[in-house]
Design a protein around this nucleic acid. Structure first.
Length: 277
DNA sequence: CGGGACGCCTGTGAGC
DNA sequence: TGCTCACAGGCGTCCC
């Protein structure tokens, strides 16, 4: 579920309140994708720094005294995860698998499918965090990602453009919903080989990815089923989707019935008339 | 190395 | 009502 917009909406929800918060207790529930060791119990007493995001990962830095080295938690929401920050004490919900109680509120990870992960790391550039982040491509809103660089990176990939966007090694943040939406807005068929996309179309695609992600953040992300922001509010982008989840329905631009195909075990939705190879 | 398939889990909705 | 099947926001790992 959570793609970049949902993760960033979550970050914006928790960062202002968690900054400077002192950890009072850590509760670990059922195992997630990666087992979490007892080292997290040593986080009690530490204080939260500014919550950061890299791709679909959140990084929660934790520090004891200013002269001590920082450490932190790398959190990924997987397919069905969401973080809530509760002000008042509340009993754990079903599917709540990690909890960080602080003097500024209780941060709770809710994740029915348990594809998410909470990983302790001594620093972002130490293992295991460094390894998890090492293969990631450009942040979509990084000014260093120019049209030329994006085009050059696509030239290196022969896989279908949809798979390249999802892979996250060229550009991070677009998952299945937003990759489909961005390709529609750029007029590119998801089966088109990335290497065959010319300069002008690459520029158009980069702009479409940026606009799609930006609009989704404005709308609080997409809630297909599980996603809630840190305050429990649903996203509404899914109501605006041009193609995602709309197989058989008319294209909003030309009326042609939208199609669904499977690429790399994932559904791709597109307009066979508006989107060209 | 690039590319593709698998597996990790639980829940839900459609069809029978 | 109840069963079975397909499918769901992601990504680490393995094999060719």
């Amino acid at each position: 579920m959570p793609e970049l917009p949902e993760v960033e909406v979550t970050r914006r929800g928790i960062d202002p309140r968690l900054r400077g918060a002192q950890v009072l207790a850590v509760h670990v529930g059922k195992p997630l994708r990666r087992p979490l060791g007892r080292e997290v119990q040593a986080l009690v007493g530490l204080r939260l720094g500014a919550v950061q995001r890299r791709g679909k990962y959140l990084w929660l830095p934790l520090q004891g005294a200013p002269d001590l080295p920082a450490q932190g938690l790398l959190i990924h929401l997987g397919m069905s995860g969401s973080l809530r920050l509760l002000g008042a004490p509340a009993p754990p919900e079903a599917h709540e698998h990690f909890r960080l109680d602080t003097d500024h509120g209780s941060l709770r990870l809710h994740d029915p499918r348990r594809f998410g992960a909470v990983v302790w790391s001594a620093a972002l550039d130490h293992e295991p965090a460094a390894g998890l982040l090492s293969g990631l491509g450009f942040e979509p809103f990084d000014a260093a990602l120019t049209d030329e660089r994006f085009h050059a990176a696509l030239q290196q990939r022969r896989a279908p453009i949809k798979s390249v966007l999802l892979g996250g090694r060229v550009i991070v943040g677009a998952g299945n919903i937003y990759a489909c939406e961005a390709l529609f807005h750029a007029g590119i068929d998801p089966r088109c080989s990335a290497a065959r996309i010319g300069r002008a179309r690459a520029a158009r695609l980069l702009q479409a990815v940026r606009q799609t992600l930006a609009q989704a953040m404005t709308l609080g992300g997409s809630t297909l089923r599980d996603f809630r922001d840190a305050h429990g509010v649903n996203g509404s982008f899914q109501q605006q989707a041009a193609v995602y989840g709309r197989e058989g329905e008319p294209c909003k631009a030309c009326g042609t019935p939208l199609r669904r195909i499977v690429q790399g075990q994932r559904s791709s939705y597109f307009c066979p008339r508006c989107q060209r190879r």
